[in-house]
Amino acid sequence: MDANRIKTLIEDGLPGARADVQGDDGVHFEALVVCEAFAGKLPLARHRMVYATLGERMGGEIHALALKTLTPDEHVRQQERG
C-alpha cells in the first residue's frame, strides 16, 4: 500500500474530502483529512468515517494510520495560527 492509494481511497469514500497522506515504509501512515462532513462530529466519529473508507485494509495492508481530521473552517483557523 502506498500513500497515494490511501489518499485516493479516502477522497473517493468521503465526497468533498481533501487528504494529505504521508508514509514511506508501506504500513505506517499519517493523514490530514479535511472534510465538511466532519462538522458537529467528535474526533472518534470522524476517525471512524475515515477508517470506513479503507475497510479491511486497516489492520492488514495498513498497519497504522495516525489521523488528524478537520472541517474546512478548522483547517483555515489552524493555518492562520501558524
Rank of each mutant, 00 (worst) to 15 (best):
H47I: 04
E30H: 10
A45S: 12
G13K: 03
K41W: 05
H47R: 13
V76G: 00
F38N: 00
R81H: 06
E36Q: 15
I10W: 04
D12H: 10
G55V: 08
L67S: 02
L54T: 03
D20V: 15
V50N: 06
R48S: 05
A17T: 07
L32G: 03
L65Y: 07
A37E: 15
A52H: 06
K7W: 08
V34T: 07
V21E: 05
P15C: 02
Q22L: 12
R48A: 05
T71K: 04
L32N: 08
V76F: 01
P72W: 12
L42H: 11
R18S: 13
H75C: 08
R48D: 04
R46P: 00
P43M: 01
T8I: 11
A52T: 06
L67V: 06
E74A: 14
D24L: 07
D24T: 12
G16M: 07
L14K: 02
G40T: 08
Q22S: 12
P15E: 13
V21N: 02
R57N: 08
H63S: 12
D20M: 12
P15R: 12
E80C: 00
A37W: 00
L32K: 11
A45L: 14
P43H: 10
R46E: 10
A64N: 07
A52I: 02
G26Y: 04
H28I: 11
M1T: 13
M49N: 00
A39G: 01
Q79R: 15
P43W: 01
